[in-house]
Nucleic acid binder design. Structure first.
Length: 591
RNA sequence: GCCCCGGUAGCUCAGCUGGAUAGAGCGGCUGCCUUCUAAGCAGCGGGUCGCAGGUUCGAGUCCUGCCCGGGGCGCCA
């Protein structure tokens, strides 16, 4: 609806500028729904923005606009100049009501768009204007060292929802998971498994608890007459023991001389990765590509990238290591890319990886990462910029951490001690839909306080996820009731929406009409939580509307009114189902 | 010391990228009502938008400086 108004207003503004001999660009004026209902359905600030350029008073400009706009093709019932120069727009009720037919006709397409927003300028100028732009969303990207934590859960849901929103707004989306199954981390993993394996065979002793509690000091070599082989920074979770026990059951003592980074590591990696993908699938996340860091080495991408950076004069040798001269690119320090041991640091493959992303044809790359990775990003962006990547085409979505609260107390979590809550445990407790909703409800920037008590709440009035789903289920409840009474649901255009003239009905229709803007805004800002809030608002209008059966019933003796209200129910259903789908929640027909 | 994020009602948080008199849910209080699936409806109270300056017609929103909380500042990933 906003777009329709904009299309009407823009030409008038252009012609006013032309008359004044101003050839500058169109001012970026806003059409918004005012906080105050008395200020109309929409409000426009263009007159105030034009005041300086035209050298006239805002209210005078608003008056001229009003004259020239007329009634905007019959949409508008009232145009009013208010305050310092706002143009307040009130639509004909019929204008709102007519939208209902469109919403129902559009069905699951309502709110979606084929015009992608925020396509980088360099893509457009390179002739990409007519094509569906390709975006890669990279998220989770956890190395296979253990089960996924709630932090990964937040990132997973966030990345997946951003992907869903981009798909719904005209992008060709690839979901990608980047991982490394080599390196020190995985070596320690293998050694941890081997230690537990030897312990199981009675050939080694587990370290005493006090040793594990503080690996910095007092680490024993022997305990209870047996050697302690568990590594100092080893992985302590129970899952390590399970993998070891499994190996022992299958192989007996045949692996005693096998090195930690052999079978032990390989088995651990395989089992943990299976576990991770199972968990992800369980919460509705499927990746298109699992990209292994190792392939960058195998294909010589690291050497090539290093060589190209060297040619650009941004590589130097010092203290036995190879450095990226980031200070030449305005960053605050230089970074090691090849250690004195000859091994690359993680920064090196990261740069090569991001360059490859663009070689693979993505127009835009979105990295979803936790707040602890913020430091890394500028180095990757600057390095790839040197290699010819437009920095505007790499985007970082950063999210803060998750804490879990129960009974007003924070549930303690420690990664090292493996006392963190896993996604699976949480989903066992609250179910997939509630899990997803709670993870996406907050804006990415802020800390997420996962209220376990509220999440476990089964009462639909209390639990926001159920509150929305129940609102959807109720549209089916109404339909079932109608069919029992021998009433068919109306077709998109087969009812008189004009019969919906109660305040709460008009308010609902207006809210439903805002859905496409909410989707567009959420997609463009990479902030899916806007959809969650919006759905809460729709449900917050629909649930009371149905509950208050004393004042209005959907199904009544008045066949025409019944049809209109059933039409409203269909429109509500369409919006709720689409919105829930964008968040990856189910839209149940009964609850 | 430097960098990033947050600070809005008793609690958990929105606030559409600078608009008009500050918003929701939960909780509290008052009155009414008894369901198209599980009690609802109407109303009330509740705020120096962390603090202080600045920018302009206009600032919760932008700039600067401070305070508080979280995270980061490795030849770890």
């Amino acid at each position: 609806m906003k777009e329709k108004l904009r299309e009407e207003i823009e030409p008038v503004v252009v012609s006013m500028l032309e008359t004044a001999g101003d050839e500058g660009p169109l001012p970026e004026f806003v059409i918004e729904v005012p906080r105050q209902k008395e200020h109309g359905d929409f409000s426009c600030n263009v007159a105030m923005l034009l005041a300086r350029r035209l050298g006239r008073k805002p209210r005078e400009i608003a008056a001229e606009l009003k004259d020239r706009l007329g009634n905007l093709g019959g949409l508008v019932s009232d145009l009013e100049i208010a305050g310092p120069g706002f143009l307040n727009i009130r639509l004909e009720e019929a204008g709102w009501q007519a939208l209902l037919h469109d919403m129902i006709a559009a069905g699951s397409e309502y709110g979606r768009s084929t015009r992608p927003l925020g396509v980088p300028a360099s893509v457009m100028s390179a002739g990409g204007a007519g094509k569906k732009p390709k975006v890669q969303v990279e998220f989770v990207s956890a190395n296979p060292t253990g089960p996924l934590s709630t932090g990964h859960g937040r990132q997973g849901i966030l990345g997946d929802c951003i992907a869903r929103l981009l798909e719904a707004t005209g992008w060709d989306v690839t979901r990608e998971y980047y991982f490394n199954d080599g390196g020190r981390q995985m070596r320690v993993l293998g050694e941890s498994v081997k230690a537990r394996y030897l312990e199981g065979l009675g050939l080694a002793s587990p370290p005493p608890p006090e040793a594990l509690a503080d690996p910095e000091k007092n680490w024993v070599d022997e305990h209870g007459g047996l050697p302690v082989v568990f590594p100092r920074d080893g992985y302590q979770g129970d899952y390590i023991r399970e993998i070891a026990d499994d190996l022992r059951a299958r192989e007996g003592d045949a692996l005693v001389d096998e090195p930690g980074e052999g079978r032990f590591r390989d088995e651990a990696q395989r089992i943990i990765f299976e576990d991770i993908t199972r968990t992800l699938a369980r919460i509705g996340i499927e990746f298109d590509v699992y990209y292994n860091e190792r392939s960058l080495y195998d294909e010589g991408k690291l050497d090539e990238t290093l060589e190209d950076l060297r040619k650009a004069g941004l590589i130097f040798d010092a203290e036995g290591a190879v450095w990226f001269k980031a200070t030449d690119r305005g960053l605050d320090r230089d970074r090691v890319v090849i250690k004195s041991t000859g091994e690359p640091t993680y920064l090196m493959p990261d740069i090569a990886y991001h360059r490859e992303k663009f070689r693979r044809g993505f127009d835009l790359v979105i990295d979803v990462q936790g707040a602890d990775h913020i430091e890394q990003f500028p180095f990757v962006r600057e390095a790839t910029a040197v290699l010819g990547v437009d920095p505007e085409r790499i985007e970082l979505v950063l999210h803060q951490f998750v804490t879990i609260t129960s009974g007003g107390e924070r549930v303690k979590q420690s990664t090292r001690k493996a006392t963190f809550v896993t996604i699976d445990e949480l989903v066992d407790d609250v179910g997939v839909d509630v899990f997803r909703f709670f993870m996406i409800e907050r804006k990415p920037d802020g800390h997420l306080d996962f209220d376990l008590d509220l999440a476990k709440e089964k009462n639909w009035r209390k639990n926001p996820a159920y509150y929305i789903q129940y609102a959807h289920a109720r549209t089916h409840g109404i339909e079932r009731k109608a069919r029992e009474a021998g009433i068919e649901m109306p077709e998109a255009h087969s009812f008189d929406a004009g019969r919906l003239d109660l305040d709460e009905e008009i308010e609902l229709v207006k809210k439903l009409a805002a859905f496409p803007e909410v989707v567009a805004h959420a997609a463009q800002s990479r902030e899916p939580h806007h959809v969650a809030y919006y759905l809460r608002e729709v449900a917050g209008l629909w649930n009371p509307y149905l509950q208050d059966a004393t004042r209005h019933r959907v199904i009544s003796e008045d066949a025409e009114l019944t049809a209109a209200r059933l039409g409203l129910a269909l429109a509500v259903r369409s919006v709720l189902a689409s919105g829930l789908g964008l968040l990856g929640l189910s839209a149940p027909e009964t609850m």
